[in-house]
């Protein structure tokens, strides 16, 4: 008979009824679901952007018009002079002049299968790769002095644009995460205030018996922590199939190395996702502590 007492006394504020295990976890689960998607978007866009920036920023394409014409000094053709400068530049590697076959393949979508029969004055095209930071404008100026009209297209410009786009996407995702956290805190605060209103009489009695503010706030916070953690865990788990589907859609963009859709999700995401329930629990605990302690100030 006596054993019944201590077992029931664990919830002497009656919080199982006051902070019900339905609405709050469901709302927190919805918030966590959104947070998981936003988090995945942030991390995946950062990783893809890093990959794109690396590839694009290194790309270097040079078009040399009238490649067989001689330079001003009359010693070399313009093409040879440009190639010599590029090969001598320590910031440039993998210099490669496109062959006739490569030019034909490149232009065939626009000019047909046999470009050579058209008699067009085609420029020579050279591809190369930046291997260290350098100034594309300075290189272009040097090449134009040797070969007037030479065009230098550096991927650094595209890399800058990709970086700006990525930063914007990440800012949006961060804003979503912040909003989700604030809404979760508001939901917890409203639920806690409802629980306080429902248990006002009980709390007043317990307060009169000598309960510390920390005793009462701690019990509310423990209950809210349990509910927010479980809600967030459910929301995060529900987000996994959606993330897998998105990863499947993104597989073609991930390059030939990606064997399985889930492997293209950033490794950091697999660390961040389990942290979501912990973050939700922290929001639940701190919001409840603040709300209850503030409410208790109204008691003598």
């Amino acid at each position: 008979m006596m054993a019944e007492g201590p077992r029931r006394a664990g919830d002497f504020l009656g919080l199982r009824a006051a902070l019900a295990d339905r609405l709050l976890p469901v709302l927190v689960a919805a918030m966590s679901f959104l947070a998981a998607l936003a988090l995945a978007g942030t991390l995946a866009s950062a990783e893809l952007a890093a990959q794109w920036q690396g590839d694009a920023a290194a790309a270097l394409t040079i078009q040399v018009p009238q490649p067989q014409a001689t330079t001003a000094s009359g010693q070399d053709t313009r093409l040879d002079a440009v190639l010599a400068v590029l090969r001598a530049n320590p910031a440039v590697a993998d210099t490669h002049q496109l062959s006739q076959a490569e030019m034909t393949r490149l232009l065939s979508p626009w000019l047909g299968a046999d470009v050579t029969t058209l008699g067009l004055p085609l420029p020579a095209v050279i591809t190369a790769r930046w291997v260290r930071p350098a100034d594309p404008a300075a290189l272009a100026q040097t090449l134009r002095q040797l070969s007037p009209g030479t065009l230098v297209q550096s991927g650094a410009i595209w890399a800058g644009r990709v970086a700006a786009l990525t930063a914007s996407l990440q800012a949006c995702a961060a804003a979503v995460l912040i909003i989700v956290a604030l809404v979760a805190a508001a939901v917890v605060a409203v639920a806690t205030r409802a629980g306080l209103a429902q248990r006002r009489e009980t709390i007043t009695i317990v307060h009169g018996l000598g309960a510390l503010d920390s005793d009462i706030a701690g019990r509310f916070a423990a209950r809210a922590t349990l509910l927010t953690f479980s809600g967030a865990a459910i929301g995060t788990l529900l987000a996994l199939p959606v993330l897998a589907w998105l990863a499947l859609l993104a597989t073609p963009f991930a390059g030939p190395g990606a064997r399985h859709a889930m492997f293209i999700l950033p490794a950091a995401l697999w660390l961040a996702l389990p942290a979501l329930p912990a973050a939700a629990a922290a929001i639940g605990w701190s919001t409840t502590q603040l709300t209850v302690r503030r409410w208790l100030k109204g008691l003598p």
């Binding site: 019944e4 029931r8 006394a9 919830d11 002497f12 009980t202 009169g208 018996l209 510390l212 503010d213």
Partner: peptide
Amino acid sequence: AALLRRRIGVVYQDFRLLPQLNAYDNVALP
């Protein structure tokens, strides 16, 4: 003040027992 209240026993006119607790736990609460 909370610690001081623990040294004061109060019998309220309207009893003020916690409805969700049994008699043993109500008495044990302080």
